[in-house]
Nucleic acid binder design. Structure first.
Lengths: 345, 345
DNA sequence: CGCAAAAATGTAACCGTTTACATGATGCGA
DNA sequence: TCGCATCATGTAAACGGTTACATTTTTGCG
């Protein structure tokens, strides 16, 4: 165990000043490299600080300069991969810039979110908020603020290119030969879900195909139910595009229950590329998102906002997605056409 | 957007005092409920504070009382379920007690960990550190500190009952009829891994069976390699117990490659119950850990340490595990016995 | 009613920095 | 040698709370 001064009072800048034979102002100047100090003096101060194991008092410093060097992160549902990845991305970026991060969950509930943000008041220099389900506009904006994944409102925001990703997947499916594609939607109030749906619709329109939307809510159970419904349709679609991977995985379960083979009888695609996507059978074709990058970029934007006085107009950044091709998509089966015909007759 | 005072100077306790017609001391007393104040005065102060939308300055408060109402969490590898669950557990407990949480990653690297902890100095009232791979003893202990999942050292710690969990799994396997059980170990410097190994050994000894240990490092690839090796042994063990789920999943892959059926030809068990365990084929039997509970309990311990002056001797708490029976374990196959015999002859 | 004890409130020192401004030292040109 | 920039450093006033101690008000009781 390293030498510990236990509960003893911490050494202050005055003691360092005394030992170095200078004033506190000089010590402060040296330590903050704010002003020119004679080289010799600098050395003395540094030596004294080192010898005393001086660590500036953070609270005093914050009080004086009105900066905490901390940013707050508010996320709904602190679960799973998304949460951990976004935090990780922010953490590395923040640490590089000498910032600390204060995190807190807030269950997509407006009031709770307001409370949490309020509680962070004064503790942070800026806020990173993710709330795809919530209207942020009613938050007080005392503090610089960047939204994650929420396009609404006049705030700075950094979002995933949900629309583009959905279009890309649709292109992939179309390229495979599908035209009769069903879409399992996410919760209507969720911004991500809406954008993905928009991409789907746009693509279907482009293909002059009729959109076929089955409502879902991002849960595995909803995907299961939706797929069961789709499987029973006649004529049966040849592909299912779920607004997220969880629902796609639920769909896989339903299809296997319905004795439909994937991708033989039915193609299935998801969105998010959650880790499990690689482990289900068949491995899920989906749209990947670099979540850590989302966090990193969000921090970057926030930190420039904190630095600069006031930005002219809301910054918007878009994180690109990538198509991840695995095993759950194939060309529509030829035989199916005849078989379907047979059922119809 | 709610009324925002923009960058305007925040209102201070003095302004509240002025408006309420009392002194700052009285305002402070009312707001902290520290001392008795006449009911009427209390009402006036509260009214003034409300009217002015007064929010105490956190830095000033910290400077004065030497408390930040924040705890620091240092975790290695901010990945996946474990990370998010433990944070979630801590978050709910902390919020209930009015604490904030500062998180930071530190890649199991001693120096980095020291740096991170140092950087949190003065920003937190206490620290929750997880570092199963690292010797903590060299950290300065200025600050109350609770270790997650590290039994070493004379610090307070809260750990998962790895030993007990391993014993429980071994009991399960033995109950199924296995005696020839191979164990894929984790990294030797990892405390969790060591405890699980200890449980395995103890059980094998209890069964008067010879331990069969294949080295691994907690990665899927290691599990794959180890299982391939085990599959080629003669006589072949009837069960594989991997020190964590990742390796068990790797093992599953290797066995399927070797045309061995699970659980028909080989039983496989893991440890951790990561989310994916439910999705692999066959679904993995494993040992579940309530990670959020780990976080919650850790916070509780830390907060009592922060409250009380100095604890007599290191507190130790153990989180119980649960056996999660799925599809990857079965009785040793009868046919195998004869087949094995045949190979031997 | 007077007085002491108890209760309520006020005053000001302190927490440990930063920084505007004052002061002292040095160098340079005339 | 003097006067004046220029540069390095010191002094002390913030920053916005808390709280020991002093002071005032209230209360209870003989």
């Amino acid at each position: 165990m390293v030498r510990s001064r236990g509960g003893a009072a911490a050494v202050t800048i005055r003691e360092v000043a005394a030992r170095a034979g200078v004033s506190v102002a000089t010590v402060s100047r040296v330590l903050n490299a704010k002003d020119v100090v004679r080289e010799e003096t600098t050395a003395q101060v540094l030596e004294a600080a080192r010898a005393l194991r001086y660590v500036p008092n953070v609270a005093a410093r914050s009080l004086s300069i009105r900066r905490t060097h901390t940013i707050g992160i508010v996320l709904p549902e602190m679960h799973g991969e998304f949460f951990s990845e976004v935090i990780r991305g922010i953490d590395v970026a923040a640490r590089r810039s000498g910032y600390h991060i204060l995190v807190s969950g807030a269950h997509s509930d407006m009031q709770e979110m307001i409370d949490v943000v309020d509680a962070m008041r004064g503790r942070v220099d800026g806020l990173l908020i993710m709330a795809p389900d919530v209207a942020i506009d009613s938050l007080r904006d005392d503090v610089p603020l960047v939204l994650l994944n929420a396009t609404d409102s006049g705030h700075d925001a950094i979002t995933v290119d949900n629309y583009g990703g959905a279009r890309e997947m649709m292109r992939h499916l179309a390229g495979l030969g599908h035209t009769h594609i069903a879409f399992i939607t996410g919760p209507p109030q969720n911004a991500d879900a809406r954008e993905r749906l928009r991409g789907y619709r746009q693509s279907m329109r482009g293909m002059r195909a009729r959109a076929l939307e089955v409502p879902g809510d991002f849960t595995e159970a909803a995907g299961f139910a939706a797929a069961r419904e789709i499987a029973a349709m006649s004529p049966r679609p040849t592909a299912i595009f779920a607004a997220n991977d969880s629902m796609a995985i639920g769909a896989l379960g339903a299809l296997s229950g319905a004795k439909l083979r994937v991708p033989g009888d039915m193609t299935v695609a998801g969105f998010d590329d959650i880790p499990i996507a690689r482990y289900v059978t068949p491995q899920l074709t989906t749209i990947g998102i670099d979540i850590a990058e989302l966090g990193r970029r969000a921090f970057t934007v926030l930190s420039t906002i904190i630095g600069n006085p006031r930005a002219r107009q809301p910054r918007r950044e878009r994180i690109a997605t990538t198509l991840v091709v695995r095993k759950s998509c194939g060309p529509p089966e030829r035989k199916q056409k005849s078989r379907t015909k047979g059922e119809e007759s």
